Amino acid sequence: DTLHVTQDGKHIELRGLSEEEIKLVEELLRRGRKVEEALKIIEELRK
């Protein structure tokens, strides 16, 4: 699936995420994380 995010005035499209990963990214962003940080966390969880 694809998640569309706008952060720091930039539109970012995150592709290839599972539904659970999207929920996790959304939660991390709500808690003030940056998109880059959220993606690093997803990458770690995929290992």
Results as ranks from 00 to 15, higher is better:
residue 1 D to H: 11
residue 1 D to T: 02
residue 2 T to L: 04
residue 3 L to T: 09
residue 3 L to N: 07
residue 3 L to V: 15
residue 3 L to S: 05
residue 3 L to Y: 00
residue 3 L to D: 05
residue 3 L to C: 14
residue 4 H to C: 08
residue 4 H to I: 15
residue 5 V to D: 05
residue 5 V to R: 01
residue 5 V to F: 00
residue 5 V to G: 06
residue 6 T to K: 04
residue 6 T to L: 11
residue 7 Q to A: 07
residue 7 Q to V: 15
residue 7 Q to G: 05
residue 7 Q to E: 15
residue 7 Q to F: 00
residue 9 G to M: 02
residue 9 G to E: 04
residue 9 G to I: 02
residue 9 G to K: 02
residue 9 G to C: 05
residue 10 K to C: 12
residue 10 K to I: 15
residue 10 K to H: 10
residue 10 K to S: 06
residue 10 K to E: 13
residue 10 K to G: 03
residue 10 K to D: 08
residue 11 H to S: 09
residue 12 I to L: 09
residue 12 I to K: 04
residue 12 I to E: 12
residue 12 I to H: 15
residue 13 E to A: 02
residue 13 E to M: 02
residue 13 E to L: 03
residue 13 E to P: 00
residue 13 E to W: 03
residue 13 E to F: 04
residue 14 L to S: 07
residue 14 L to A: 13
residue 14 L to V: 15
residue 14 L to D: 10
residue 15 R to L: 14
residue 15 R to M: 14
residue 15 R to P: 15
residue 15 R to G: 15
residue 15 R to I: 15
residue 16 G to L: 02
residue 16 G to Q: 06
residue 17 L to E: 00
residue 17 L to Q: 00
residue 17 L to C: 01
residue 17 L to Y: 13
residue 17 L to S: 01
residue 17 L to A: 05
residue 18 S to V: 07
residue 18 S to E: 09
residue 18 S to H: 09
residue 18 S to Q: 09
residue 18 S to N: 12
residue 18 S to L: 10
residue 18 S to Y: 08
residue 19 E to R: 05
residue 19 E to C: 12
residue 19 E to H: 13
residue 20 E to N: 14
residue 20 E to I: 10
residue 20 E to Q: 10
residue 20 E to K: 12
residue 20 E to C: 11
residue 20 E to P: 10
residue 21 E to V: 03
residue 22 I to N: 03
residue 22 I to S: 10
residue 23 K to F: 12
residue 23 K to Q: 11
residue 23 K to E: 13
residue 23 K to P: 06
residue 23 K to A: 14
residue 24 L to F: 08
residue 24 L to A: 07
residue 24 L to V: 11
residue 24 L to K: 08
residue 25 V to G: 01
residue 25 V to M: 06
residue 25 V to H: 01
residue 25 V to L: 06
residue 25 V to K: 01
residue 25 V to C: 07
residue 26 E to I: 15
residue 26 E to P: 00
residue 26 E to L: 15
residue 26 E to H: 12
residue 26 E to A: 08
residue 26 E to K: 13
residue 26 E to N: 07
residue 27 E to P: 01
residue 28 L to F: 11
residue 28 L to V: 12
residue 28 L to T: 09
residue 29 L to K: 01
residue 29 L to I: 12
residue 29 L to H: 06
residue 29 L to R: 02
residue 29 L to Q: 03
residue 30 R to Q: 13
residue 30 R to E: 15
residue 31 R to F: 10
residue 31 R to V: 14
residue 31 R to I: 14
residue 31 R to M: 14
residue 31 R to S: 14
residue 32 G to M: 04
residue 32 G to W: 01
residue 32 G to D: 08
residue 32 G to V: 01
residue 33 R to H: 14
residue 33 R to V: 15
residue 33 R to F: 11
residue 34 K to D: 08
residue 34 K to N: 10
residue 34 K to E: 08
residue 34 K to A: 11
residue 34 K to G: 08
residue 35 V to Q: 02
residue 35 V to R: 01
residue 35 V to F: 02
residue 36 E to W: 07
residue 36 E to K: 08
residue 36 E to A: 11
residue 36 E to P: 07
residue 36 E to L: 14
residue 36 E to C: 13
residue 37 E to V: 08
residue 37 E to S: 06
residue 37 E to Q: 07
residue 37 E to K: 04
residue 38 A to W: 03
residue 38 A to R: 00
residue 38 A to H: 00
residue 38 A to M: 15
residue 38 A to I: 15
residue 38 A to D: 00
residue 39 L to M: 14
residue 40 K to S: 12
residue 40 K to P: 03
residue 40 K to H: 13
residue 41 I to E: 11
residue 41 I to T: 10
residue 42 I to E: 00
residue 42 I to C: 02
residue 43 E to H: 10
residue 43 E to Y: 05
residue 43 E to S: 05
residue 43 E to P: 01
residue 44 E to P: 00
residue 44 E to Q: 10
residue 44 E to S: 10
residue 44 E to A: 12
residue 44 E to W: 05
residue 45 L to I: 14
residue 45 L to N: 14
residue 46 R to E: 02
residue 46 R to M: 07
residue 46 R to Q: 09
residue 46 R to K: 08
residue 47 K to D: 10
residue 47 K to N: 13
residue 47 K to G: 11
